[in-house]
Each structure stands twice: as structure tokens, then as C-alpha cells.
Design a protein around this nucleic acid. Sequence first.
DNA 1: GTGAAAGCGCTAACAG
DNA 2: CTGTTAGCGCTTTCAC
Lengths: 344, 344
Amino acid sequence: MTVAERGTGRDGRPTLEQVAARAGVGRGTVSRVINGSPRVSDRTRAAVQQAIADLGYVPHRAARALAANRTDAIALVVPEPEERLAEPFFGGIIRGVSAELADTDIQLLLTLIRTPRERERFTQYATSQRVDGVLLISVHGDDPLPDQLAEAGIPAVMTGRRTAEEQVPYVDCDNVGGAQLAVEHLLGRGRAMVATITGPADMYVAQCRLDGYRAAIRAAGREVDEGLIARGNFTEESAYLAMHELVRRRPRLDAVFCASDLMAVGARRALRELGRSVPDDVALVGFEDSALARHMDPPLTSVNQPTQAMGRAMTRALLEEIGDSDPDLPRLVLPTELVRRASS
Amino acid sequence: MTVAERGTGRDGRPTLEQVAARAGVGRGTVSRVINGSPRVSDRTRAAVQQAIADLGYVPHRAARALAANRTDAIALVVPEPEERLAEPFFGGIIRGVSAELADTDIQLLLTLIRTPRERERFTQYATSQRVDGVLLISVHGDDPLPDQLAEAGIPAVMTGRRTAEEQVPYVDCDNVGGAQLAVEHLLGRGRAMVATITGPADMYVAQCRLDGYRAAIRAAGREVDEGLIARGNFTEESAYLAMHELVRRRPRLDAVFCASDLMAVGARRALRELGRSVPDDVALVGFEDSALARHMDPPLTSVNQPTQAMGRAMTRALLEEIGDSDPDLPRLVLPTELVRRASS
DNA sequence: GTGAAAGCGCTAACAG
DNA sequence: CTGTTAGCGCTTTCAC
């Protein structure tokens, strides 16, 4: 028994066919109405809409995707272990993306990629017409995924870039400027020995923040002491270790610029254990202005990376790509600002 | 020109048809191999797999979904504004779900529902065969979504329940027991006037934690003072306000059990502003043992709600529902434990 | 403007 | 065990 004979879809739900029958028109016409084609008379349109309402018809996604070759879904790829989803940065991005998608009919797929095998699987997934586009975050310098997607012709936009000459569309914030702000703030308050805990060497964002640090030091007429520079990987634990190392190397440091708020948390924990007080003995500035930073006691002065705005911007850019109207690849850099708090 | 004539899919990707041709078998056989049917000879299977590898064939999702009437996707519904995604609870759940889905071929769709309109849209979405099942969290007592989904015949599992007699499958933790642990801990350390900041009255989880509070007070042979009970809504801000109110009503309180870690953060902020020290003057215990709690200074003693485990359990339950093997609806309650920290 | 018809790529009977 | 066939529900020419 076919749908046409049965008078209903296989799961009892009405199909376009029934709508057409009820409205007394052909299937094509119903399809046109649904897709907002202008080539339909007002009378017909009204009749169809009435039939749709009567039947409570809802288009079947898969059928539409198959016929039209699009999915109305985009993927957000997080190339990190799931623990990191809890970090303020990821939460902010997700919120921004969700907000931007709110009045769209587009579904968001969340994909974590932790291993080469998973990356492989995702590439397959994406190239198999299951998403219309891909959002990438936390890209590392050697991440091949952006290029793979580009080759496969899948629209993609990322937050952050891999190098200064990034070819794939991206949205970023002013990391150099933000870091400079942070360090200038510290220097301006009379701190003499400003250290920094930066991110992984293979991430451009980390390089930029370190560049900003260096620039600020030099702008103050001082020399950059490499011993005051330590690496973390944006996690709290890494900063905890880095802070210990810094204090070991330069016991007299009196300020630290951390390339993320979470790392400031780790640094503070280490300092506390070492019997150094924050901010009296050592001043700390973070980067991101997360809820975490706001909840710290004493509060953390922080550079405001507009995470949520970046999520929104990235999404808008991708939607444009998909709508393939704009041939100009969006390359957007958002400003940063320093958020100063009373006790820091 | 049709696919068969063209010798390739419409976007240049191989189809099942080409695989069949190359392997010298029929389409049905290829389909069987792909879906792991045992009714295929080893020789044939090998030939097909070879052809798949040669061509780099990847099944087309939409086509499969349309033909098989399943989507290999599940939705995680968060009936809260996106700000709340940043809360430890949601992060934990997402991580648990992702972990459980990791070696599956199932995609996770994240959906925020903030308005009745969005709920409506989601119901439509779900009932339109776009997901195989739904995960629900943060359910309020009057949330109609679980029942709507049940009526529509869509498998759903939630974390938390709406009432003691929840009919829809759920996973929960021992909220009453956890709260009791917390309050006993406080009483056991000599605190005389233990207050509580609990969650919204319309959430069963909040009722349970309040019940646990009451039970512990009574078990200690004391009377419950309603003036020591305040309501929050699990956000930091609500707890901040609630804490102010509590202190106004009972200035001599010397301990507070907060129904979430985030609320403990808010409570502590209020106490600080009021010139009361934590934990010397007022002791605080939270619920959830989040990263937030661990990062607090001084650290927060907290009941460990196994958020990630709940996410995993919920997912496993849903997958079973979908596989529709087990007619017993899973009703699972996970244990809680108190995590004590040095300085609290 | 509108109907009819031809697929989209796959699964699931149904015969062998 | 395996090939064939008939759809799944929708979009999209192509005529009229």
C-alpha cells in the first residue's frame, strides 16, 4: 500500500500529497507555497495554507534534504576533549551560535573531535551532505580540517586563525591589542616584574597574546626577559604548573598576565600555595572576562574577549557563505577591552 | 540524466549504485553489507567492501533516513536561556552525553527552548521524524514537553523528574540524601543555625533538596525554622538576593546549605558584602561539586552530584529505548556523596 | 500560474 | 544468499 492509497504518511503523519489533495492542487504547487515561491496566486496560496493548517502538516526533513540536496543543519566542531566544553570560552561560543540560530530553521550539531580517527569520521560525515556548513573553534596551527573542508567544498568559518595569513574565513578578536592593554595596566600600576603565562605554541591566538605582552614591555622602554614567559595550554592545571615554574625562575615577579581567565585561576592557586598573596604581592590579569573571573575572590581584572559576539559573528558569516551570496570571504576582527575590578 | 547513467551522485560523490556496479552485485546486497546483515557470503562482502574502499563511498544520510525512517540523531533539549549553558550542570551533562555517543554513529543536536513558541517549534521538529529520540534536562514540574513527546510516540529520557510519580523514563541522583549529608556535615561541625537556599518551587529537584534539609534538621532533634529557608532559581544572582534576605531575617545564622554550587558562589558574594567571613563566621556547603566550587577561595565543601554520569546514564537509557529492545522503562537514581575540603 | 513526472539515494520486502 | 522492485516524501524541471 502506498502513501497515496493510504491517504497518510507511513507514520500517520500527513504528507505533501495529502495537503495537495485537500487543497485541490498539485504537489508541486504545495511545494511552492511551502518554499515561498512568488509564482503562486494568492487564492491558491491561501487554500494550500488552509489545508496545511487543517492537517497539521509538517515537512519531512529527510525527504526535503534528499530532494533539495541541503540539510538545514550546521555543525560546530570542538577539536578538544569534552572536559574543555566546561570552559568559559566554549560556553560563550555555543551561546553566541545558539542565539544567532534562534530564529532560523537551522539545527546545530555539536561535534567533539578528540582523535585523528574522530576527525576522519567527521570529515566523512561533513562530506556526506549531512551538514550545510561547519563552524570551527580552537584551531591549532597544524589543524588540517579547515583545508580538508575547503577542498571538499564545504562552507566553513572559524573563530581564531591558524596563522597571520589564514586563508579560510574566520572571526577573531584583537589578541595583540588585548594583551597589550593587560600588560600596560599592570605596568601602569607600578608593577616592576611582569610575567606571562601564555597558550600552546601551536596556536596563533597564543602567539598573538604573547606578542602583545612583548610589545607592551618594549613600549615601556624595558627589555623582555624570556625567563618571565611560561607556556600553558589554556587549562587551569597547566597554568598552575607554569606559575610554579615562573616563581622558581623569577622569585621576585610581582605581576602576571595570563592568556586566559581559567589560567589565571590556576596561577592564583599556585601563588596561594607558595604563600604569595593576590593582588597585594602579585597582581594578576586574565583574558576573557568569564563568569569564573567575576566569581573569583578577590575578583580578577581581565581583558574582555567578546566570546559570545564571536560565536554570533562566526555564525552569521557561515550563513552568508551558505547562502553563497557574498563572494567576499568574511575576515572579521573584533575589539577587546580591559575590565578592571575594584580589588585587583 | 539520472544517477545511473551519469555513473555518479549529483555532487560527484559515489552512490550505492556505483558500488554495486563495481562490486558486480545488486544494490540490495551492498545495502546489506553496509548495514551489517549476516545474510551475505564472505566473498561477496569482501568484494563490496573493496568497492566501497576504492570509491570512497559514504552513505547519504538523508536518503537513508527517508528510506529507513530513522535519523541516527538525538536531541538534547535545554529548556533554559542560553546563559545557563555556562553553568557547571549543563556542561557536565553535555560532556556525559558526548562521551556516551562517542563510539556511536549518532549525532547530537543541541536545542535551547526559551519560549512557548520555541517549545512549539521543537515539538514539531521532533514529531517530524527528524530525531530518533530526545534527552530532556532541567525539567520543571509543569513542563508539558515530556508528555507531548510521549503522546507523539517519540522516545525520551530525562535527567531529573517532575514529581515523585514521574511516568516518563528518567535518571536522577539522590537529592534528598545529598542534602541530608550536607546539613549533617554542618550540624556535625557545631553550627547552630543552618539556613538553606533552595531552588525554584516548581522543580522537584529543589523540593527534594529542601526535604533533605528538613529531614536532617529534624533528625538532629531540632525544629525547622521556616525563616531559615529561602528560594533561588539555581543562578548566582538569585542566591545573592536570597542570602541578603536570609541575613536580614536571621542575622545570627552561622551556616548555609545551597542547593547548587553556583548559588553558593552568589551566597558567598552576599556574605562578603555584608562583612561576614566564610567559613569562619558562616559555613557554606554547595551541591554539585563543580569546577567552580573547586576554584573558589576558600574552597567550597560540596555534595557531589554526578552530573556527567547522569548524562551518560540518560543517554544509555535513550539508546535502549530507541533500540526498543527493553520494554522496562529505565528509572535510575544515582548516589551522591559529600566532598569535603580542607579549609571549609 | 499550475500540474505532471522524473528523480534524489537508500532500505526493505519479495522472489528466486 | 542475492537481484529486483517498489517506494520513502519532497523539489524541480518542463510543458501547458
